[in-house]
Protein backbone atom coordinates (compact mmCIF):
# COMPACT_ATOMS: atom_id res chain seq x y z
CA UNK A 1 0.00 0.00 0.00
CA UNK A 2 1.19 3.49 -0.84
CA UNK A 3 0.35 6.24 1.62
CA UNK A 4 0.95 9.85 0.65
CA UNK A 5 0.50 11.86 3.83
CA UNK A 6 0.12 15.64 4.17
CA UNK A 7 2.49 16.43 1.30
CA UNK A 8 3.20 20.11 0.63
CA UNK A 9 5.83 21.28 -1.81
CA UNK A 10 6.87 24.43 -3.69
CA UNK A 11 8.82 24.92 -6.89
CA UNK A 12 10.60 28.24 -7.48
CA UNK A 13 8.75 29.81 -4.57
CA UNK A 14 5.33 28.79 -5.96
CA UNK A 15 3.20 26.34 -4.02
CA UNK A 16 2.57 23.32 -6.21
CA UNK A 17 1.12 20.86 -3.72
CA UNK A 18 -0.65 21.67 -0.48
CA UNK A 19 -1.56 19.05 2.08
CA UNK A 20 -1.96 16.19 -0.38
CA UNK A 21 -3.28 12.93 1.05
CA UNK A 22 -3.76 9.82 -1.02
CA UNK A 23 -3.82 6.09 -0.39
CA UNK A 24 -3.29 3.51 -3.11
CA UNK A 25 -4.26 -0.01 -2.14
CA UNK A 26 -2.20 -3.10 -2.86
CA UNK A 27 -2.63 -4.31 -6.42
CA UNK A 28 -4.48 -1.17 -7.55
CA UNK A 29 -3.79 0.73 -10.75
CA UNK A 30 -4.37 4.40 -10.04
CA UNK A 31 -4.74 6.96 -12.81
CA UNK A 32 -3.38 10.35 -11.78
CA UNK A 33 -5.16 13.05 -13.71
CA UNK A 34 -5.23 16.83 -13.77
CA UNK A 35 -4.79 19.74 -16.12
CA UNK A 36 -1.28 20.78 -17.28
CA UNK A 37 0.75 22.19 -14.39
CA UNK A 38 -1.56 20.72 -11.75
CA UNK A 39 1.37 19.01 -10.00
CA UNK A 40 1.03 15.39 -11.18
CA UNK A 41 4.73 15.03 -12.11
CA UNK A 42 5.81 16.75 -8.90
CA UNK A 43 3.66 14.35 -6.86
CA UNK A 44 5.15 11.34 -8.68
CA UNK A 45 8.69 12.66 -8.09
CA UNK A 46 7.92 13.05 -4.40
CA UNK A 47 6.30 9.61 -4.30
CA UNK A 48 9.42 8.07 -5.84
CA UNK A 49 11.85 9.95 -3.56
CA UNK A 50 13.36 12.12 -6.31
CA UNK A 51 12.12 15.26 -4.54
CA UNK A 52 12.30 15.66 -0.79
CA UNK A 53 8.94 17.16 0.21
CA UNK A 54 8.88 20.31 2.30
CA UNK A 55 6.19 18.76 4.45
CA UNK A 56 4.68 15.32 4.79
CA UNK A 57 5.87 11.82 4.02
CA UNK A 58 5.39 8.96 1.61
CA UNK A 59 5.17 5.43 2.95
CA UNK A 60 5.28 2.09 1.16
CA UNK A 61 3.84 -0.66 3.33
CA UNK A 62 4.46 1.67 6.25
CA UNK A 63 8.16 2.27 5.44
CA UNK A 64 9.64 5.58 4.28
CA UNK A 65 10.37 6.03 0.57
CA UNK A 66 13.89 7.13 1.50
CA UNK A 67 14.88 3.71 2.83
CA UNK A 68 16.99 1.65 0.42
CA UNK A 69 14.95 -1.46 1.22
CA UNK A 70 11.78 0.39 0.19
CA UNK A 71 13.34 1.75 -2.97
CA UNK A 72 14.32 -1.70 -4.17
CA UNK A 73 10.61 -2.29 -4.72
CA UNK A 74 9.95 0.97 -6.60
CA UNK A 75 10.55 1.91 -10.21
CA UNK A 76 9.82 5.42 -11.44
CA UNK A 77 9.66 6.15 -15.15
CA UNK A 78 9.75 9.93 -15.69
CA UNK A 79 8.14 11.62 -18.67
CA UNK A 80 11.48 12.28 -20.37
CA UNK A 81 14.17 9.86 -19.14
CA UNK A 82 17.81 10.85 -19.50
CA UNK A 83 20.26 9.32 -21.95
CA UNK A 84 23.53 10.51 -23.45
CA UNK A 85 24.57 10.68 -27.11
CA UNK A 86 26.01 7.19 -27.12
CA UNK A 87 23.65 5.44 -24.70
CA UNK A 88 22.15 2.21 -26.00
CA UNK A 89 19.46 -0.01 -24.55
CA UNK A 90 22.20 -2.39 -23.49
CA UNK A 91 24.00 0.39 -21.54
CA UNK A 92 20.78 1.35 -19.78
CA UNK A 93 20.13 -2.27 -18.82
CA UNK A 94 23.68 -2.66 -17.44
CA UNK A 95 23.32 0.45 -15.31
CA UNK A 96 19.97 -0.54 -13.84
CA UNK A 97 21.11 -4.09 -13.16
CA UNK A 98 23.62 -2.59 -10.71
CA UNK A 99 20.67 -1.47 -8.60
CA UNK A 100 18.27 -4.30 -9.37
CA UNK A 101 20.50 -7.41 -9.45
CA UNK A 102 17.51 -9.74 -9.87
CA UNK A 103 16.60 -8.12 -13.18
CA UNK A 104 16.82 -10.67 -16.00
CA UNK A 105 18.22 -9.97 -19.43
CA UNK A 106 15.70 -12.40 -20.93
CA UNK A 107 12.76 -10.35 -19.59
CA UNK A 108 14.22 -7.13 -21.00
CA UNK A 109 14.85 -8.83 -24.35
CA UNK A 110 11.30 -10.23 -24.35
CA UNK A 111 9.72 -6.80 -23.93
CA UNK A 112 12.08 -5.23 -26.47
CA UNK A 113 11.14 -7.94 -28.96
CA UNK A 114 7.44 -7.09 -28.50
CA UNK A 115 8.20 -3.52 -29.56
CA UNK A 116 10.83 -4.54 -32.12
CA UNK A 117 13.62 -2.45 -30.60
CA UNK A 118 17.31 -3.17 -31.12
CA UNK A 119 19.15 -2.80 -27.78
CA UNK A 120 22.48 -2.13 -29.51
CA UNK A 121 21.40 1.02 -31.33
CA UNK A 122 21.97 4.46 -29.76
CA UNK A 123 18.80 5.76 -28.16
CA UNK A 124 19.28 9.17 -29.79
CA UNK A 125 18.34 7.61 -33.15
CA UNK A 126 14.99 6.41 -31.82
CA UNK A 127 11.68 8.23 -32.20
CA UNK A 128 10.04 9.53 -29.02
CA UNK A 129 7.66 6.58 -29.01
CA UNK A 130 10.47 4.04 -29.42
CA UNK A 131 12.41 5.61 -26.55
CA UNK A 132 9.29 5.38 -24.45
CA UNK A 133 8.89 1.72 -25.36
CA UNK A 134 12.50 0.98 -24.44
CA UNK A 135 12.11 2.50 -20.98
CA UNK A 136 8.76 0.75 -20.48
CA UNK A 137 10.52 -2.53 -21.32
CA UNK A 138 13.15 -1.65 -18.73
CA UNK A 139 10.53 -0.81 -16.10
CA UNK A 140 8.71 -4.08 -16.65
CA UNK A 141 11.95 -6.10 -16.65
CA UNK A 142 12.80 -4.72 -13.19
CA UNK A 143 9.54 -6.29 -11.94
CA UNK A 144 9.00 -3.74 -9.18
CA UNK A 145 6.29 -4.10 -6.60
CA UNK A 146 5.45 -0.44 -7.13
CA UNK A 147 5.53 1.08 -10.58
CA UNK A 148 5.21 4.86 -11.03
CA UNK A 149 4.75 6.04 -14.61
CA UNK A 150 4.67 9.70 -15.65
CA UNK A 151 2.88 10.56 -18.91
CA UNK A 152 2.94 6.88 -19.78
CA UNK A 153 1.26 7.10 -23.19
CA UNK A 154 3.20 10.13 -24.40
CA UNK A 155 4.56 9.49 -27.90
CA UNK A 156 3.04 6.04 -28.29
CA UNK A 157 1.06 5.24 -31.45
CA UNK A 158 -2.37 3.53 -31.09
CA UNK A 159 -0.93 0.04 -31.63
CA UNK A 160 1.86 0.60 -29.10
CA UNK A 161 -0.70 1.92 -26.62
CA UNK A 162 -2.64 -1.27 -26.99
CA UNK A 163 0.50 -3.38 -26.50
CA UNK A 164 1.50 -1.29 -23.50
CA UNK A 165 -1.90 -1.62 -21.84
CA UNK A 166 -1.82 -5.36 -22.38
CA UNK A 167 1.70 -5.59 -20.93
CA UNK A 168 0.71 -3.56 -17.85
CA UNK A 169 -2.40 -5.64 -17.28
CA UNK A 170 -0.40 -8.87 -17.51
CA UNK A 171 2.33 -7.41 -15.30
CA UNK A 172 -0.16 -6.42 -12.58
CA UNK A 173 -1.88 -9.80 -12.76
CA UNK A 174 1.34 -11.81 -12.64
CA UNK A 175 3.20 -9.75 -10.02
CA UNK A 176 0.38 -8.22 -8.01
CA UNK A 177 2.07 -4.86 -8.52
CA UNK A 178 0.65 -1.50 -7.52
CA UNK A 179 0.78 1.11 -10.26
CA UNK A 180 0.36 4.88 -10.32
CA UNK A 181 0.15 6.24 -13.82
CA UNK A 182 -0.28 9.85 -14.87
CA UNK A 183 -1.60 10.64 -18.30
CA UNK A 184 -3.81 12.96 -20.28
CA UNK A 185 -5.09 9.99 -22.31
CA UNK A 186 -8.11 9.38 -20.14
CA UNK A 187 -9.72 6.87 -22.46
CA UNK A 188 -6.57 4.77 -22.19
CA UNK A 189 -6.48 5.09 -18.41
CA UNK A 190 -10.08 3.98 -18.12
CA UNK A 191 -9.21 0.68 -19.81
CA UNK A 192 -6.92 -0.54 -17.06
CA UNK A 193 -7.07 1.78 -14.05
CA UNK A 194 -9.42 0.79 -11.29
CA UNK A 195 -9.17 4.05 -9.38
CA UNK A 196 -8.20 7.65 -10.01
CA UNK A 197 -7.07 10.83 -8.28
CA UNK A 198 -7.70 14.27 -9.68
CA UNK A 199 -5.07 16.84 -8.76
CA UNK A 200 -6.46 20.33 -8.76
CA UNK A 201 -5.65 23.55 -6.93
CA UNK A 202 -2.55 21.99 -5.31
CA UNK A 203 -4.38 19.07 -3.77
CA UNK A 204 -6.33 15.88 -4.48
CA UNK A 205 -9.68 17.35 -5.48
CA UNK A 206 -11.40 14.01 -5.90
CA UNK A 207 -10.45 10.37 -5.91
CA UNK A 208 -12.04 6.98 -5.83
CA UNK A 209 -13.12 3.99 -7.85
CA UNK A 210 -13.55 4.95 -11.51
CA UNK A 211 -16.62 2.76 -12.05
CA UNK A 212 -18.33 4.15 -8.93
CA UNK A 213 -17.60 7.74 -9.90
CA UNK A 214 -18.77 7.23 -13.48
CA UNK A 215 -21.97 5.64 -12.18
CA UNK A 216 -22.72 8.78 -10.23
CA UNK A 217 -23.32 10.50 -13.58
CA UNK A 218 -25.73 9.73 -16.39
CA UNK A 219 -25.88 10.97 -19.95
CA UNK A 220 -28.85 11.44 -22.24
CA UNK A 221 -29.43 12.51 -25.82
CA UNK A 222 -32.74 14.36 -26.12
CA UNK A 223 -34.58 15.91 -29.08
CA UNK A 224 -37.59 18.22 -28.99
CA UNK A 225 -40.13 18.92 -31.73
CA UNK A 226 -39.76 22.66 -31.15
CA UNK A 227 -36.61 24.73 -30.76
CA UNK A 228 -35.72 24.99 -27.07
CA UNK A 229 -33.01 26.74 -25.08
CA UNK A 230 -30.78 25.29 -22.36
CA UNK A 231 -33.05 26.92 -19.80
CA UNK A 232 -35.44 24.03 -20.18
CA UNK A 233 -33.10 21.98 -17.95
CA UNK A 234 -33.19 24.54 -15.15
CA UNK A 235 -33.77 22.86 -11.84
CA UNK A 236 -32.10 19.61 -12.89
CA UNK A 237 -28.64 18.64 -11.52
CA UNK A 238 -26.88 19.18 -14.87
CA UNK A 239 -23.13 18.91 -15.12
CA UNK A 240 -22.86 19.59 -18.83
CA UNK A 241 -25.25 20.56 -21.63
CA UNK A 242 -24.37 20.49 -25.35
CA UNK A 243 -26.83 21.83 -27.95
CA UNK A 244 -26.83 20.82 -31.59
CA UNK A 245 -29.92 22.09 -33.43
CA UNK A 246 -32.93 20.51 -31.71
CA UNK A 247 -30.71 17.87 -30.10
CA UNK A 248 -29.25 18.15 -26.60
CA UNK A 249 -26.62 16.01 -24.87
CA UNK A 250 -27.00 16.34 -21.15
CA UNK A 251 -24.83 14.93 -18.37
CA UNK A 252 -26.53 14.88 -15.00
CA UNK A 253 -25.61 13.87 -11.51
CA UNK A 254 -27.75 11.14 -9.99
CA UNK A 255 -29.43 7.85 -10.69
CA UNK A 256 -30.13 7.35 -14.41
CA UNK A 257 -33.69 6.01 -13.98
CA UNK A 258 -34.66 8.89 -11.74
CA UNK A 259 -33.14 11.41 -14.15
CA UNK A 260 -34.85 9.75 -17.14
CA UNK A 261 -38.21 10.18 -15.40
CA UNK A 262 -37.53 13.86 -14.78
CA UNK A 263 -36.42 14.41 -18.37
CA UNK A 264 -39.54 12.69 -19.69
CA UNK A 265 -41.59 15.33 -17.90
CA UNK A 266 -40.10 17.84 -20.39
CA UNK A 267 -41.96 15.98 -23.20
CA UNK A 268 -39.04 15.23 -25.49
CA UNK A 269 -39.61 13.74 -28.94
CA UNK A 270 -36.66 11.40 -28.46
CA UNK A 271 -34.73 10.40 -25.33
CA UNK A 272 -31.79 7.96 -25.35
CA UNK A 273 -29.47 7.07 -22.50
CA UNK A 274 -25.76 6.98 -23.40
CA UNK A 275 -22.74 5.62 -21.50
CA UNK A 276 -20.57 8.07 -19.56
CA UNK A 277 -16.82 7.55 -19.87
CA UNK A 278 -13.90 8.58 -17.66
CA UNK A 279 -12.93 11.42 -19.97
CA UNK A 280 -16.39 12.94 -19.64
CA UNK A 281 -16.17 12.53 -15.89
CA UNK A 282 -12.83 14.39 -15.92
CA UNK A 283 -14.06 17.14 -18.27
CA UNK A 284 -17.23 17.65 -16.29
CA UNK A 285 -15.13 17.86 -13.10
CA UNK A 286 -12.73 20.47 -14.49
CA UNK A 287 -15.50 22.44 -16.16
CA UNK A 288 -17.39 22.34 -12.93
CA UNK A 289 -14.29 23.86 -11.33
CA UNK A 290 -14.33 26.68 -13.86
CA UNK A 291 -11.36 25.86 -16.12
CA UNK A 292 -13.16 25.56 -19.50
CA UNK A 293 -16.54 26.48 -20.86
Amino acid sequence: MIEIKNISHSLGGKKILENVNLTVNEGSVLGLVGINGAGKSTLLRIASGVYIPEEGEVLYDGASVFLESTRREIFFLPDDPYYTLHTTGKNIFEMYRVFYPDMKKADFAKYLAIYGIDEKKPIRNFSKGMRRQLFIALALAVKPKYLLLDEAFDGLDPLSRLTFKKAINEFVEENGATVIISSHSLRELEDFCDCYALIDKQTVASSGDIADEVNKLCKFQIAFTEDKTEDIFAGLPTVKIEKNGRFFRVILEGDSEEMAEKLNLLSPAVIDEMPVDFEELFISEVEHRGYTK
Binding site: R45, S48, G49, V50, F66, E68, S69, R71, R72, I74, F75, F76, P78, D80, P81, Y82, F99, Y100
Partner: peptide, 15 residues
Protein backbone atom coordinates in the same frame (compact mmCIF):
# COMPACT_ATOMS: atom_id res chain seq x y z
CA UNK B 1 23.24 19.40 -13.00
CA UNK B 2 20.73 17.77 -15.32
CA UNK B 3 17.23 17.48 -13.92
CA UNK B 4 16.30 14.70 -16.34
CA UNK B 5 19.24 12.67 -15.14
CA UNK B 6 18.34 13.23 -11.50
CA UNK B 7 14.88 11.81 -12.24
CA UNK B 8 16.56 8.57 -13.24
CA UNK B 9 19.15 8.56 -10.43
CA UNK B 10 17.48 9.72 -7.26
CA UNK B 11 14.76 7.07 -7.08
CA UNK B 12 17.29 4.24 -7.33
CA UNK B 13 17.84 2.03 -4.28
CA UNK B 14 20.97 3.77 -3.02
CA UNK B 15 20.89 6.70 -0.61
Amino acid sequence: KNRRNLDTLYFLPMN
